[in-house]
């Protein structure tokens, strides 16, 4: 196991940030920690990177105990925090050299690991890092987190606030890093980013809701979901809320994802009900479950 988390709890004053968290990340895995702001993702990252001590439970990273062997962990992990934390007054090149030096290595020694990523910002290597665009900062931060060839890479919300194109590119980059043998734990609030992860943990309010492969998590969903569409979205939501047999109603793009309380749901009956509410062009079709459906069902 690359990361082992056993019964970790952490509170800040009267706020319980993590409540009895346990899961494991296998060596070479690309593992996603999926949950909204305030779920406890950053607190867990800080415990695993030895920046914070848990109130209860234990954790090991790359075989080292998070308390007893904290210095070993620091030598063998890369950590990219959610907030940009490089030296804004140093240039791109200087930041990279700085991080290589404090880890007792050189940029040349591990250049092949960062080449793909660094090459994109190399034209700006004389620019101070504070003057880079968001996307470039992200690439530099990742290069710095990788320059000592870590066994485990921690990425805390690397794609938050990033547009879909750059997000897609970033995940493709992670997939290539994984192929180089690095274990990656990455957190994100975007539920659609789970597809490229080997396994994911869903987290909300300091609790793990489920840990499995994305496909298995979807398979565990207990209900049949229907895509419902009508001419007026807002009126459709109001009408479905008034329907006594509804189990859940969630807008999903141009449709509403609907589940029914009953086992023998009859779409025709619901169409009649909606027509009675004045809606037109109604369609009800079975649809595939997504991770987001599962998350919402578990978080209810």
């Amino acid at each position: 196991m690359s990361i082992k988390i056993e019964h970790i709890s952490k509170s800040f004053k009267d706020v319980s940030a993590l409540k009895d968290i346990s899961f494991e990340v296998k060596e070479g895995e690309l593992f996603g920690l999926i949950g909204p702001d305030g779920a406890g993702k950053t607190t867990l990252f800080r415990i695993l990177t030895t920046l914070l001590i848990a109130d209860e439970g234990m954790a090991t990273v790359a075989g080292y105990d998070a308390i007893k062997n904290y210095k070993d962990i620091r030598n063998h992990v890369g950590y990219m925090p959610g907030r940009f934390s490089l030296y804004q007054d140093l240039t791109v090149e200087e930041n990279l050299e700085f991080f290589a030096t404090i880890f007792g290595t050189t940029v040349e020694e591990n250049y092949d690991l960062i080449k793909d990523i660094y090459i994109q910002i190399e034209p700006f290597k004389k620019r101070r890092s504070g003057k880079l665009s968001g996307g470039m900062k992200q690439k530099l931060a990742l290069s710095c987190a990788l320059i000592h060839k870590p066994k485990v890479l921690f990425l805390d919300e690397p794609t938050t606030g990033v547009d879909p194109v750059s997000r897609k590119e970033f995940w493709e980059m992670l997939k290539r890093l994984q192929q180089k043998g690095i274990t990656i734990l990455v957190s994100t609030p975007y539920m659609d980013e789970t597809a490229l992860c080997d396994r994911i943990a869903l987290i909300q309010d300091g609790k793990i809701l489920e840990v499995d492969t994305p496909q298995e998590i979807i398979n565990h969903y207990p209900k049949k979901i229907y895509n419902i569409k009508a001419d007026k979205m807002y009126e459709l939501i109001l009408a479905l809320n008034a329907y006594e047999h509804n189990h859940s109603i969630y807008p999903f793009g141009e449709y509403v994802h609907y589940t029914d309380k009953r086992g023998d749901f009859n779409p025709t009956e619901l169409i009649q009900f909606l027509e009675g509410k004045g809606l037109k062009n109604i369609s009800i079709q079975p649809t595939e479950t997504t991770i987001e459906d599962t998350f919402m069902e578990l978080a209810r």
């Binding site: 909204p36 807002y234 939501i237 807008p251 987001e292 978080a299």
Partner: peptide, 23 residues
């Protein structure tokens, strides 16, 4: 970007508020 990082249920409640406002 009113819903960045917000959990998926609240994000949808937020959009219901948007629909209502536009309505």
């Amino acid at each position: 970007e009113p819903t960045g990082g917000v959990d998926p249920i609240t994000r949808r409640q937020f959009w219901e508020m948007i629909y209502k406002t536009a309505h």
